[in-house]
Nucleic acid binder design. Structure first.
Lengths: 208, 208
DNA sequence: AAAGGGTACGATCGATCGTATGATCTTGTC
DNA sequence: GACAAGATCATACGATCGATCGTACCCTTT
């Protein structure tokens, strides 16, 4: 899994311009996938969107599956940078839990991805299609809920949540709320879902 | 919108064998769409799945968009028959609200659709793709949440929910929970999400 | 029983899909 | 500055896509 800046996984050297192109392709792919889907992401369309030739795009990935996996990695990187890391700066406990939910809703509202949350989008698409792509998406989804659970446990340890609260259950419910808000926002185009999620989350977290 | 048994929308007569074929195609399509997606639903694949020729399948629908819309109608019919109607038999109030949620979770568990809830699946796929298909899906989704809201209002009128409760907000949260359970079930293949949803719903409804 | 039309088939269209190949240009290293 | 190798290109392959025919077949009605 380790991978330095100038070598690819199989030991080939990488040129600076190649890295730049690959990054540009994947950034386009991550955003495009929330609209067209991971399967609808075609090499030709990606080539047109980046101004490259089909062969030029394809050269960076040995197969479409590789492209899909690399796209997921890029989306994860964007998500962590926009949602997880900024929230990690908030004070430990219920504040941090509230903040990470707020950042999630904010990244939907700001349309970081044009089709809403990347993982909600591709999870629905690929969940019934066994394979390494589905497995990777499932893994990332578990990691997200596990993050919520860790923050909930922390809040409980600080006495900001009842002792008999179930952090796993709370994480499930919080994730359900923000994902539902995402779906409503993208499907109906209005912010009422976001506001309902905020209200429900506040309700769930202000029981100290 | 009215449509008798022997005529199509544009006045053409329909033969009995044609109606049967069309029904069979759409039943296959509704279930297949939760795995392949509404866009991934190809005429050729549908023809192979039903043992017909491509031309034979296509003759029933003037375009792929027509096929998608007809598939949504069929899925709605199935959903109403399996989830909505049985729950409508339950006693008015919180019982009926609980029952319709339970029926939803049950239809996921029983895999009425192989890819989980049809509308959750296609909503995520088409929500960022403007057009009549997206509009129809959005309309059905609103109708589902509105049903939950009506039942919640009824429960409140019967004094089974606090007077200061917000039925619209409750409907949003209940929908969020059952959809999240659906996603977890299909993506991870275990029932813990279903059980968490049941617990959360019970929590939300037993505040009389 | 004859007529009319819904139904289904098979062939085919142009477009696009993922993938492969070989030539050409560009970059980094000695 | 030459040389190796990565990056990109143009082209092409077979498969499949949505869509459109012409042509049989069979059901329904008269």
């Amino acid at each position: 899994m380790s991978q330095d800046e100038t070598h690819t996984a199989d030991g080939r050297r990488q040129r600076a311009d190649g890295q730049r192109s690959r990054r540009r392709i994947l950034e386009t792919a991550a955003r495009l996938a929330t609209v067209e889907g991971l399967e609808g992401l075609s090499i030709g369309r990606l080539a047109a969107a980046t101004g490259m030739s089909k062969g030029g795009v394809y050269a960076h990935f040995g197969s479409k599956e590789d492209l899909q996996l690399a796209t997921i990695d890029k989306a994860r990187e964007i998500f962590i940078g926009v949602v997880v890391l900024p929230a990690a700066a908030a004070p430990k406990g219920v504040d941090r839990l509230r903040e990470v939910c707020a950042r999630f809703l904010d990244h939907v509202d700001k349309q970081v991805f044009p089709g809403g949350c990347f993982f909600a989008s591709v999870a629905a698409e690929m969940s019934a299609r066994p394979g390494s792509v589905r497995d990777r998406i499932a893994q990332e989804q578990r990691a997200w809920v596990a993050l919520l659970e860790r923050y909930a446990t922390e809040a409980q340890r600080l006495g900001q949540l009842p002792e008999d609260a179930d952090p796993t259950q709370l994480a499930f419910e919080l994730n359900a709320l923000v994902v539902a808000a995402n779906t409503a926002y993208v499907l109906h185009g209005d912010r009422t879902g976001l506001e309902r999620a905020v209200r429900a989350i506040e309700d769930r977290l202000s029981v100290a």
